[in-house]
Each structure stands twice: as C-alpha cells, then as structure tokens.
Amino acid sequence: MASRNPARPLSPHLQVYKWGPHMLVSILHRVTGSGMATVGSLLLVWWLAAIAAGDQAYATFVDVFTTDTGGLNILGYIVAVGLTLSLFQHMMTGIRHMVLDIGAGYELKRNKMGALATMVASVALTIVFWLYMGIK
C-alpha cells in the first residue's frame, strides 16, 4: 500500500498562481478555437442540409438569422458578432504565440501587455469590421 509522504511536492494548481491576463488569453484561445469549430461546423452542416432539402428549408435557415428587410435579427447579430469576435481573438492570440515562439515577449511586463493587447485588438477589429460591413 502506498504511503502518504507529506514532503512530496504538490503540483501547481490554480490556487497557487496569481490570475493574470496571460492566463485569460490562453483560455480564450482554446475556447474561441473550439467555439468556432463547433458553431461553424453546425452552421455549415445546417446550411448544406437546407440547400439540399430545397427552397423551403433554405428559406427557413435564412429566416432564422435575418429580418424581412434583409438585415440580421437579434439571433443573427449574436451569432455573427460572436463568431467575428472569436475569429479576431483567436487570430490575435495566434500572432502573440508566434511572437512567443521566436523567444520574444517573455518578460513579465511585456507578456502582460501583449495579452491585454490581444483582447483590445480583437474588440477593436470586431467593431471596425462591423462598421465597415454597414450594420443594418
């Protein structure tokens, strides 16, 4: 039977670390990647199935996300803006990881600023994108 040795070192856990933006960005990178893959795949499959099923099924798909005037309804905005924000957040953290991979940005202050910059840039890019698209 294994004995409990109190001198044995413990694995670091969330309670040991001080929460910081670098941790949030790491988690956001994984969540946005998984979210885009899941939501994007489901929408693609639904869209393809609607096209294959005929005009009525495709009209139902379009009606879920748009209004009568052709603009997005509230569900359409939530899905579209959410996917856009996810795309830009994932892209910005990917660029940050490329910088880290070349060995730059590991200093604590620079790492924290880089993490914050990814979040600010992703929100700014999302706003600029939707302003460019001319929100209806």
Rank of each mutant, 00 (worst) to 15 (best):
G40Y: 03
A49K: 04
D68R: 11
L48N: 06
I78H: 01
S41M: 13
L24M: 08
D55F: 11
L14I: 07
K136N: 05
L87E: 01
I78A: 06
K109R: 09
V25T: 03
H97F: 13
Y77W: 13
R30E: 12
M98L: 15
A52T: 13
V79H: 00
R8T: 12
K109L: 02
W130M: 05
P12S: 09
H90Y: 09
L72G: 02
G54P: 04
W47A: 14
M1A: 13
T93C: 00
K136Q: 10
M98F: 11
L108R: 07
W19P: 12
I74D: 09
L28Q: 03
G35I: 14
V31N: 06
G71T: 15
K136V: 12
F88R: 05
G94C: 12
G103H: 14
A37F: 09
G105N: 04
A115K: 01
A50K: 04
N5A: 08
M133H: 04
H22D: 12
L87F: 15
V62A: 10
K112N: 11
A53W: 07
G76M: 14
T93Y: 03
F88Y: 11
L125K: 02
A7I: 08
S26Q: 09
M133C: 09
V99P: 02
P21T: 00
L87H: 05
M36D: 02
I27S: 02
Y77I: 14
L42A: 15
D68P: 09
V62W: 09
T118A: 07
L87R: 00
K109M: 09
S26L: 07
T67E: 08
